[in-house]
Design a protein around this nucleic acid. Structure first.
Length: 829
DNA sequence: AACGATCACCAACTC
DNA sequence: GGTGATCGTT
């Protein structure tokens, strides 16, 4: 086997092996070579299916790996196996993942198996980071210089907005965000401006869709920039238009592995096919093995990215694409209790079009808890109750890091955060609002981008007048127009303009200063350490000073973040390397070692596991998400169900599902119905929480509070909206529990009051609460209240009606101030 | 040109 | 609840 040029020293069959890393499994594996099976130690402890998935090295393989069945172990061991048996150099293995986290984890675990050799795997990464690597080499074939920049969604939207305005269109009527989203969708499908369907092209901006898309691509080219979609599309173009280049990679990548195959979109699929389907293999000249050594690992039940273009069909049609493919199912679960698996399996069985797997576990745990379902009045109480449960678990000796709260939508996080702050409970937001998205970080990055890449107009425009330098809209536009007219970067245009007298004296001076600043910084780039340079730039530009003079509450935090930014640059060797990292790797994993509760969305929970999982917000409209239902119809619902499945299967031992009766959405309180998914959980594996375990104490406290009313009363009413829709035995038991608890604890007086609050004066039968949005379903009905009327709201207390819009009331509350609420939630006093 | 106040609109998630 | 856009003011 010839050693590839870009490989690092490692062992091959003919070469002496370096001393293996001590304790490395590979070391033991090599020592054990020649013995009977398991021939190598790293295959110890694997079940037969896993072993098959690892040892079937030649030819196409699809591994259908259910949740918790050792998917990552199979992938990493397979790679270790390929390397250890000398079938390929580390650099000859292409291993793609979707997230940086997955790539990082895989790299770490391969490191445990093969030691140093993992450092020789340059082609282990996300689709996008590998795309960047390809384009740095071959970008010129599609008109990109090798120092191109990568635009994030924010940049894209700003750019699209400029283009929409340049076309003389109203950017209100045709929102840039929407068009950016459309472009992204086209790119996910592998469509360039010429390829998009006529209907799509006409759908936006009076038929100017295609024109705009073309203009957008043109603009990217002049900016020497790529958006995320281009990181996939450009390599595809290179491969298609330059067979010699493709051939080079065919020879290079002897083994291809794909993680989370069910999440590949069409462009990624095209990309993979180009690399995996070799013409010589098709002609049968490749040693009879079929030649396509591709191994895709995935789980159709965990496909949750349909809305961003992932195509489940990719996994469903694998066998057609790669004839002779071996399909291996991993169904033995090593993570969860039988209760959790039972609940998840029963839920997901409601989906059609599955490849079909049934997870099982062999561990028998007599103490295992069923899945717990809880009800709460509103999201605030939900957060409080979850907080209590967490504290109880903590007192029982569980560590916070073993618990996670998985929400459907990120806005749900705030209430938990608020609660945890009050409790002094450590928490960690995983994948939440990211560091790089912060205003000050983006500003600082813009400075660095202009220095590293003077043609980066988007970055230039962002900071040309930040801090304020007296360069207003008028001046910036002048520079912009000058640049566009001469097809040059704005920085250069600014440099030329200040030589002329086209600009008034004041802005001319500041613009000149900016230009010479950037010139100076740029000259320093080669001679100064990038961290020092960054510090110098922030200092000399007046940017840090701007925040030092800012007396707002956030300013100190922002300065802290800027320091953090400089610190995080340390580990990169150069400014460009750092900028690329930021563009692609948007997470900073700080505080990983702290013991803290994990808070994240269901999407970002995929691939993780926790002892205890809290799943709040199981309500119609939120989960399943209304938008998924509206846009995706049945398949949208199925995707939501898979998301629920992902949530449940994250748990090893305990699951607590919550739903609330009232949730505030867009600042308005809305009544909600429990999610249909609750109904799809099997009774055998579910227990509906008894009142005293989850509601005791604090509910009572509130009944004595300023607003007087207990919050659970509504549930005990005979007209309970849940009754009709939810007939399962488990559900009835839940009703019964609620009823009993209500009656015993709080009596009926407030029950009556709340009943009216919940249904308004028209009575329970008249106004059906229509699941997701009461506001929508009843907006035609004029409100029965009148202006100035004195009303009572159970959360906000007494107030006067200031305005009426259908059934939405604007009320000036005595204590809570002005709020907008639905009329169903207030009563006359 | 800069600033502060008010308003409209939005809020799945990843690279 | 937060943000960006817009308007009126200096």
């Amino acid at each position: 086997m010839a050693k590839p040029d870009d490989d690092i020293p490692f062992f091959g069959d003919e070469e002496p092996r370096p001393a293996p890393a001590s304790g490395g499994i590979a070391a033991r594996a090599m020592a054990a070579r020649g013995a009977d099976r398991p021939a190598v130690a790293y295959l110890d402890g694997l079940n037969p299916e896993q072993t098959e998935a690892i040892e079937t090295i030649e030819g196409p393989v699809l591994v259908l790996a259910g949740a918790g069945t050792g998917k990552t172990r199979v992938l990493t061991t397979r790679i270790a196996h390929i390397i250890s048996t000398g079938r390929a150099w580390p650099s000859q293995i292409l291993a793609v993942t979707f997230t940086n986290k997955a790539a990082r984890e895989m790299k770490e675990r391969i490191g445990f198996l093969v030691g140093q050799a993992v450092e020789g795997m340059p082609w282990l990464g996300t689709f996008h980071s590998i795309g960047v690597k390809l384009l740095r080499r071959h970008g010129e074939l599609v008109g990109l210089r090798s120092d191109f920049t990568i635009l994030d969604t924010d940049d894209v939207i700003r750019l699209v907005k400029q283009l929409i305005r340049a076309e003389g269109l109203d950017d209100k009527r045709w929102p840039a965000r929407q068009f950016a989203h459309m472009i992204d969708g086209w790119k996910n499908k592998g469509l360039g401006p010429a390829d998009i369907p006529e209907g799509d092209a006409r759908a936006f901006a009076n038929g100017k869709g295609r024109e705009l898309y073309t203009a957008y691509q043109e603009r990217l080219k002049t900016l020497n920039a790529c958006d995320f979609g281009d990181l996939l599309l450009h390599p595809i173009r290179v491969f298609r238009e330059h067979p010699d280049v493709l051939k080079e990679y065919h020879a290079k990548f002897r083994y291809i592995l794909v993680d989370e195959y069910q999440d590949t979109n069409t462009a990624q699929y095209m990309w993979l096919r180009l690399l995996a389907q070799r013409p010589e293999a098709a002609r049968g000249k490749d040693g009879g093995t079929g030649g396509v050594n591709i191994c895709c690992v995935g789980d159709d039940d965990q496909s949750i990215y349909g809305w961003r273009g992932a195509d489940v069909d990719n996994i469903l049609r694998f066998e057609k694409d790669f004839p002779g493919a071996r399909v291996i199912r991993l169904e033995r679960n090593y993570r969860s209790t039988a209760h959790i698996l039972g609940a998840a399996g029963h839920l997901i069985a409601n989906n059609e079009g599955r490849l079909g797997k049934t997870l099982f576990t062999e561990s028998e745990d007599p103490d295992a808890e069923p899945v717990n379902v809880h009800a709460a009045w509103d999201s605030e109480e939900e957060a409080r109750a979850v907080g209590e449960e967490i504290e109880q678990l903590e007192r029982d000796g569980h560590s916070l890091s073993d618990m996670a709260i998985l929400v459907r939508a990120s806005f749900q996080m705030r209430e938990f955060e608020d609660r945890f702050v009050t409790l002094g409970l450590n928490y960690r937001v995983v994948g939440g609002p990211r560091f790089y998205e912060r205003l000050e970080i983006r500003d600082a990055m813009a400075y660095l981008r202009v220095v590293a890449q003077p043609s980066d107009d988007l970055a230039f425009e962002r900071i040309v007048n930040t801090p304020k330098r007296g360069l207003g809209e008028a001046t910036v536009r002048q520079v912009h127009d000058y640049a566009r007219a001469r097809d040059m970067p704005m920085l250069q245009a600014a440099g030329e303009l200040v030589q002329t007298d086209e600009i008034k004296a004041k802005p001319r001076k500041s613009l000149g200063d900016v230009v010479s600043d950037f010139r100076r910084w740029r000259d320093l780039m080669d001679s100064t350490k990038h961290t020092d340079l960054a510090e110098q730039i922030l200092e000399e530009s007046g940017y840090t000073e701007m925040w030092q003079n800012d007396r707002s509450a956030e300013a100190p935090g922002r300065l802290e973040n800027l320091k953090e930014l400089i610190r995080s640059m340390e580990e990169f060797e150069s400014l460009p390397a750092f900028l690329e990292h930021i563009a692609l790797v948007m997470d900073t994993d700080r505080n990983e070692q702290m013991d803290a509760v994990n808070l994240m969305t269901l999407h970002s929970a995929k691939g993780l596991e926790f002892e205890t999982v809290f799943l709040p917000g199981w309500e119609e409209g939120l989960f399943p998400h209304q938008r998924a239902l509206d846009e995706g119809g049945r398949s949208g619902l199925e995707e939501e169900r898979r998301l629920a499945y992902v949530g449940l299967t994250r748990a090893k031992r305990r699951v607590h599902v919550w739903f609330v009766s009232n949730r505030r959405i867009h600042g308005m309180w809305q009544s909600t119905l429990p999610s249909r998914f609750l109904d799809e959980l099997p009774e055998d594996h579910v227990s509906v929480a008894e009142m005293e375990t989850s509601y005791g104490g604090y509910g009572r406290n509130h009944s004595g509070g300023p607003y007087g009313t207990s919050r659970f009363d509504r549930m005990g009413t005979s007209a309970d909206p849940f009754t009709n829709a939810y007939e399962t035995p488990g559900w009835k038991r839940a009703q019964k529990n609620r009823t009993d608890a209500t009656r015993t604890n709080w009596g009926t007086r407030s029950g009556h009051a709340v009943e009216r609050i919940a249904y308004g004066e028209s009575g329970p039968a008249g106004r059906t609460i229509e699941g997701e949005l009461v506001a929508k379903s009843t907006s035609d009905t004029p409100s029965e209240f009148s202006l100035g009327e004195r009303v009572f709201h159970m959360k906000f207390g007494n107030g006067n009606i200031a305005a009426i819009e259908g059934n939405k009331l604007t009320i000036d509350f005595d204590k809570a101030g002005r709020k907008r609420v639905l009329d169903g939630f207030v009563e006359r006093t």
